[in-house]
């Protein structure tokens, strides 16, 4: 892949698939909004802990990464974990 355009949905998909046990169950939904694009992460129930972490540490690291990737596009992103 050529460097240049970030792909937040693909980024989240790659990271989350590598964190969970059940990679097949991973779904990323991209919901563009006027100001903010929302990304909803769905994983198998047994994998919730693997994407949230103690006190949300993993979830927050995922958000930090997504925000950094969106910086050059001057786009606001929100990452939600569907439970």
């Amino acid at each position: 892949m050529a460097a240049g355009e970030p792909s937040i949905a693909e980024l989240l998909d790659f990271v989350v698939r590598n964190l969970v046990d059940d990679a097949e169950a991973v779904q990323i939904a991209e919901k563009p909004g006027r100001r903010v694009t929302v990304y909803e992460i769905t994983v198998a129930r047994g994998d919730w802990g693997k994407v949230i972490g103690k006190e949300g540490r993993i979830a927050n690291a995922i958000r930090t990464l997504a925000k950094a990737a969106a910086t050059p596009m001057q786009q606001h992103v929100a990452v939600e974990i569907m439970t």
């Binding site: 990271v15 590598n18 964190l19 693997k50 540490r57 993993i58 927050n60 690291a61 995922i62 930090t64 990464l65 950094a68 990737a69 910086t71 050059p72």
Partner: peptide, 24 residues
């Protein structure tokens, strides 16, 4: 600058996630 982030927070998030991804 983008991968480092302010006070290295993006680099630290990246490092934290990579540890979990690779050491699974």
């Amino acid at each position: 600058g983008i991968v480092i982030g302010s006070c290295g927070q993006t680099l630290n998030a990246l490092q934290f996630l990579l540890n979990l991804m690779v050491n699974k």
